[in-house]
Write a protein that binds this DNA or RNA. Structure first.
Lengths: 297, 297
DNA sequence: TAAAAATACTCCATAGGTATTTTAT
DNA sequence: ATAAAATACCTATGGAGTATTTTTA
């Protein structure tokens, strides 16, 4: 059996004649005659009654042809799907980002994607880096915005931007009074740096920052979000690092954000996808658009 | 595109590997690789992502494979239909009969068919001969019980039985008093023979009977059924012919049925089907069973 | 290095064509 | 006599095989 055979069946049934159907199918009459005969032999049942002026389906044939029509409809559906998604800039796109970036960054790139890739249906996924990598590897996510570097193999990426961390201090803290809003890391010894809980990539970055500068990070409490950290700082529990994108003035109640007068800690952000993807072209384009766009308003 | 290709798609998707799917499909790995590539080219879309350890469907591929599974399910359905109906003694059978036979004969052959052709689903159609011939020719009816001869070409038949006509007379009629329940056609001149309306094959038979024996048949009223004719006879409106099968004692209220002492009028009944049918075997068998069965209890 | 897919080539089964015969009206 | 399907015979496309190369972890 063969999809073409099914088309023959339907055509013969519709036109009531093998000769006419052969014209419709652009094959010879003998081809139809032979193919139908073969199919009947394969199925072990007569599908058509050959009459003098016309060919009519048998009862069995009629039931078979009904199904053929459904099948051919599904096949047309397959071609439609392929056609509509053959444009690499269309279709569903599941984009992941980690929690200390996602809520601040997603709102800014949604309009960008809408404008530059209007046929893309964007689905946003906020997960910690570990989950994102799993999802990416499993194919549940198409691409993800991650802090670099990423150890796991099998991914390709484009760098999007580097983002500085600010030091968040209580408004009434001694450091907050430094003019210029800058602080020297040497001044931080003895301060308590508040950290996010395990699993957040930013926790690692903060720990690295502490380690490289001999700062204590024996946080008695671990926050599960930047917002909690911010509240803790405002409540005078300690200091913390806040990525620039999350340090909007509107969220500065009771807090001052200081940059560093010596070396600025930062995170490098990239867009990652599976090396094996068939949508590489799209992802490269996306990354380019995302890198071009000014993130900080 | 090709049904086999669709099976390949599904197998690869299920097994996550072309090599494993090739074993499952009993073809070589290269065959799958090539066929899938061709299909992807034909559709203009990537269906699988080739990764180092496994092959996974792309978004498009997943949607296509969904449809493939439906299609393959329908195809299995086609094979099922063919298998279940490949037994010529099974399936639906639309059997027609004309109105002066159908209501008396159908009840007697239903048990016969049930017993001898248990897998046959019998559908009974009662129509006048003209309609039956049309339905038969159009394929709406598979076979029909008709009074012979049938002029129209394209049909084959087997004779089932010959059925005598009785003369129905009012119980108090002079003819009813003849001993032995027999009547000579010579005694019928001057009697009024009641007829069925146009379209009933039995009307033609009755007219022929009248013509061949010089009997008047200027019926002022034409009945639409044997039951009406019977009522009219009982009411003393005239005489009529009644086929033996319809002349049960239970239906004899106020009526006597007489046979003829000279030549007995009769109708010959046969089972007819299209010459082009693919179920000839079944119809011949059916006719044989019907002819064997004693009709009159 | 190993495991998988892709490629190169060869072969042949079969869909398809043309010409002709058979069948049924 | 005509119109349609079936058949005979030939061609060629493309599905499938084996052997090998490429790719990626």
């Amino acid at each position: 059996m063969n999809l073409r055979d099914l088309e023959y069946l339907v055509a013969i049934s519709r036109l009531g004649s093998m000769a006419r159907a052969s014209v419709y199918c652009s094959v010879s009459q003998s081809t139809l005659s032979i193919q139908i005969k073969k199919l009947e032999e394969e199925l072990g049942a007569a599908l058509f009654e050959r009459r003098s002026r016309r060919v009519t389906p048998t009862r069995t044939g009629a039931r078979v042809i009904e199904r053929c029509e459904r099948i051919l409809h599904e096949v047309r559906g397959i071609r439609e799907i392929a056609k509509s998604e053959s444009d690499p800039l269309s279709g569903d796109l599941r984009l992941g980002a980690f929690p200390t970036l996602a809520p601040y960054w997603f709102p800014r790139i949604i309009p960008l994607v809408k404008e530059r890739f209007p046929k893309l249906r964007l689905q946003l996924v906020e997960e910690k880096t570990g989950q994102l990598l799993e999802g990416l590897a499993a194919g549940a996510i198409d691409c993800a915005v991650l802090a670099m570097p990423v150890e796991q193999r099998g991914f390709e990426h484009r760098r999007l931007f580097a983002e500085p961390f600010y030091l968040a201090v209580p408004r009434d803290h001694a450091l907050a009074r430094k003019r210029g809003g800058k602080v020297d890391t040497a001044r931080l010894s003895g301060e308590n740096l508040l950290l996010l809980e395990e699993g957040h990539c930013m926790r690692g970055q903060a720990l690295q920052f502490c380690a490289s500068r001999g700062i204590s990070s024996e946080g008695s409490y671990m926050a599960s979000s930047l917002e909690t950290l911010r509240n803790m700082v405002a409540a005078g529990q300690g200091l913390t690092l806040i990525p620039k994108i999350a340090a909007s003035p509107a969220a500065a109640t009771g807090i001052r954000y200081l940059s560093f007068s010596d070396s600025q800690p930062r995170r490098e952000i990239g867009l990652f996808w599976r090396t094996s993807t068939s949508r590489r072209e799209l992802f490269v384009g996306l990354a380019k658009a995302m890198a071009d766009r000014r993130i900080y308003s």
